[in-house]
Design a binder for these strands. Structure first.
Length: 476
DNA sequence: TGCACCTTGTG
DNA sequence: ACAAGGTGC
């Protein structure tokens, strides 16, 4: 039993199914929670202002929810990860903490920070670590040779098998503690207000996304009950509201993957016998796990490296003008531009469109996938390193289970297939309303739109040459 | 080891 | 149909 415990919240901003919080409450007389904003580190990791704002609003709600459990949530401000460690150490000492409860983060910098924390706190207090970001924790799934999987399909089969064997459970809301830790002295600490005006990071309004746990959960329930069945049929069409848009909450941890799985099974049955619609959505959840596992097994992907070393030295053209055109949604390819406008305007982009604009950046504009990866992080409300990096490396053919390099999306074909009526295009490019559907998918919309910055057929040939040149060089 | 598999494209 | 690749059983 601990007298005075501290829960360090990071990407587990929820009261339900939070093992660190749950255990702290079960084993302690009194509990205090702390969140430390590392503003400079966020900049360095290209965290979007909109995601930071969603965190800010989520913390406001969490503060109230925790107060009902007799837990104070103290929000502090640091610059770097080193400052974060120093602050935590200061909290532990000044608050006379004897138990620290933390959920793991798996990125290289985060792991290094946590290692420093362990060294700093030394043997002063016990730290309890929890794995909650994945349903099945990283390193726990290996292939027949005892190695982590590099290919998704066998990974997902092994994942399901393991789930069936070991089972899983969601944790309930912790029981209210008998009293508040009343003497938490924060007077010497860099307290941070959760008001937008005082927030130590650029503000980008995130109010289109839910910040309170109840609403997030209601969204999960509504999706599972009303739309999961149609997910497989609807998910590829950006004009249809076919996806769950729960990714922002999974990214900041106001929702856990286990909660998603539990709700899906509650409505649709066991994971291994789901009907097509729900099964396809579960598959997307497993993709998320897959990329987390890949990042842990091959941490060099965290250091700006291609997963496949052979693909490290592709001589990208990296034309700044073309990159700007892509960022702004001014390439002249209607669906690509509409997609980029969705990202810029809402902080979110449909996954089909993420694949299309990523393929276009790498294989039509011949720009380094890392430029796109970075831009996505600065804009996405659901930015998550592993998922974003995995997706970009997939598109660039440099990653695990990637599309072969000669597989190059044809923007016009994709547009016809997944936005046949041009409804999505017209939503974000209203100037194309009224343009014939025979023309709307074409580069420059058959003359009704901006001139195309490149010619797909020509660039496709250049792309193949670029990759081949680079690969032959490696082989020789 | 050979073969299926892969968020697809071109001829 | 076939394909400029790579993985896993």
């Amino acid at each position: 039993m601990y007298q005075r415990s501290c829960v360090w919240l990071r990407r587990d901003l929820r009261v339900l199914d939070n093992p660190a919080l749950f255990d702290a409450c079960q084993t302690s007389e009194a509990v205090v929670a702390v969140y430390v904003i590392p503003a400079a580190q966020w900049q360095e990791h290209h965290k979007s202002a909109i995601q930071a704002d969603l965190i800010r609003r989520t913390l406001q709600h969490l503060q109230q929810e925790l107060a009902q459990l007799n837990i104070e949530l103290v929000v502090l401000q640091a610059d770097s990860f080193d400052d974060q460690v120093a602050l935590l150490s200061q909290c532990v000492n000044t608050w006379q903490i004897d138990g620290l409860f933390v959920s793991r983060e798996y990125e290289v910098d985060e792991v290094a920070r946590d290692k420093r924390l362990v060294q700093t706190l030394n043997d002063d207090i016990a730290i309890q670590w929890y794995d909650e970001r994945c349903v099945i924790k990283p390193n726990a799934i290996v292939n027949g040779s005892g190695q982590p999987y590099k290919v998704f399909t066998p990974f997902s089969k092994a994942w399901l098998k393991q789930l069936q064997e070991s089972g899983w459970q969601c944790l309930a809301k912790p029981q209210m503690l008998s009293g508040l830790m009343s003497d938490v002295d924060s007077s010497c600490l860099p307290l941070c207000s959760l008001k937008a005006d005082d927030w130590p990071y650029p503000i980008d309004d995130s109010s289109a996304y839910a910040a309170d746990g109840k609403t997030v959960l209601a969204q999960l329930r509504a999706f599972s009950a009303e739309r999961a069945e149609r997910y497989q049929a609807d998910r590829d069409f950006p004009a249809i509201d076919g996806t769950s848009i729960l990714s922002p909450y999974l990214a900041i941890g106001s929702l856990s993957a286990k909660q998603c799985l539990a709700r899906l099974c509650h409505d649709h049955g066991a994971p291994w016998e789901l009907a097509d619609g729900a099964r396809t959505w579960l598959t997307e959840l497993i993709w998320r796990e897959f990329y987390q596992h890949v990042m842990v097994a091959w941490p060099h992907v965290c250091k700006d490296k291609a997963f496949k070393p052979d693909y490290e030295d592709i001589p990208w053209a990296n034309d700044e003008q073309l990159f700007q055109a892509w960022c702004r949604g001014e390439t002249g390819y209607p669906l690509v531009d509409a997609a980029m406008r969705q990202l810029n305007e809402t902080g979110w982009m449909h996954n089909r469109l993420r694949m299309i604009v990523a393929s276009f950046l790498c294989k039509d504009l011949l720009i380094d996938w890392r430029w796109g990866e970075r831009y996505f992080m600065t804009k996405l409300v659901d930015g998550d390193f592993a998922a974003n990096n995995g997706g970009w490396q997939w598109a660039a053919s440099t990653g695990t289970d990637a599309a072969p390099y000669f597989r190059i999306f044809n923007p016009e074909t994709q547009s016809k297939r997944f936005d046949g009526q041009g409804r999505f295009i017209q939503q974000y490019l209203p100037q194309l309303q009224g343009v014939d559907t025979k023309l709307i998918h074409q580069a420059s919309a058959g003359g009704h739109y901006l001139p195309a910055v490149v010619d797909h057929k020509e660039r496709r040939q250049m792309c193949l040459a670029l990759y081949q040149q680079s690969l032959n060089k490696e082989a020789g």
